[in-house]
Amino acid sequence: MGIHSVANACAHLQNASRARLGLTSLPNNKYNLRLALALHKAGFLSCVTRGGPHPPPLDQLSSYTPEPITSKNVATSRLWVGLKYWDNEPVLKHLNAVSKPSRLVTSGLKDLERVSRGFPAGHLKGLNLGECLFLATDRGVMEVREAVERRLGGLVLARAS
């Protein structure tokens, strides 16, 4: 699976958020799962659950145990993602993919240090107030501040705010 599923997921999540949906689904793959978990960790999503083509029961989102993945249902399994809203506004207002299949954007530690402090570096603009940048590093998908803390660079996936 390439980076295109991440780009699609970003567009879908932003659209779903602007449409004020409570629960939406992404294709279940490793990249999407890691990005969704990173977003969840950053507080943009309320829940991330694996499920089938139908949404899991809403009252057991946290205690729900999905079916084990088999070769039969792997194609139809989805990631069900809960969206958050606060003060009549979506928490995830903007989610823009940075890397595209046609151009992968990678960034080193030096640039990321500048970007995370709000200054532009290379192709990346500095982070604004409340903005997050998600990277795919060899230690997993994480936020730029965590990557800088861990002295890591990597593939820039998306900007969220």
Partner: peptide
């Protein structure tokens, strides 16, 4: 202008 406190409450994070 964005309000940092509102953002923090929305994400459940400490800013």
């Amino acid at each position: 202008q964005p309000d940092p406190e509102e953002i923090a409450i929305g994400r459940g994070k400490k800013l």
